[in-house]
Simulated scan of single mutants.
Amino acid sequence: MPAKWATLGAWLAVAGCLGRLAAQAAIGFDSTPYGEGNAMLLFEGGFLLAGIALPLLLVYRPGQVFPRWMLLLPGAGLGAGITAYFGAGLIQMIVEALRGERAFAGSDLPTAFFWVAVPCYLVWGLGLATATYGYYTRTRKPCKGCGR
Rank of each mutant, 00 (worst) to 15 (best):
G35Y: 12
A76K: 01
F113I: 14
A23K: 00
I52A: 06
P110Y: 14
A39T: 09
G75C: 05
P142A: 11
K141L: 05
F104K: 15
P62S: 06
S31M: 14
L56H: 10
P62E: 06
G106T: 11
V95K: 07
P74Q: 07
L90G: 14
M40T: 01
L90P: 07
F104Y: 14
P33G: 02
P142I: 09
Q92H: 13
F43Q: 10
L78N: 12
N38I: 14
G75Y: 07
D108Q: 10
A117D: 11
A103W: 05
L49M: 08
I27D: 01
R140L: 02
P74T: 02
P110S: 14
L71T: 00
Y135C: 06
L90H: 08
P74W: 08
W69T: 08
P67G: 03
A112V: 13
Q92F: 05
P62G: 09
S31L: 13
S31R: 06
V118G: 03
S107M: 04
R140D: 14
G127L: 00
R138L: 10
L122P: 02
L41Q: 02
K141N: 11
L41M: 14
L126G: 15
A53E: 02
P67Y: 03
A103D: 08
G79M: 01
F66N: 09
L56Y: 06
G127P: 15
G100N: 10
G75P: 12
A23E: 00
T139P: 13
L71P: 03
L72A: 10
G87T: 03
W115I: 14
L122M: 05
T32R: 08
E44F: 15
R61N: 01
E101H: 12
I82C: 02
T137D: 15
I94P: 08
E101I: 03
Y60W: 07
G100P: 03
Q64A: 13
L56D: 04
G46Y: 12
P74K: 07
Y34L: 12
L54F: 10
F104A: 06
A112W: 06
G106R: 15
D30V: 01
G77S: 12
L73R: 11
G106V: 11
T139I: 00
L98A: 07
F113K: 03
G134Q: 13
F66S: 11
Q64W: 01
A80H: 06
A129R: 06
L56N: 11
Y60I: 05
E36K: 01
G127V: 01
A50E: 15
A53W: 10
Y34S: 02
A76Y: 11
G89T: 15
L58K: 11
V65M: 07
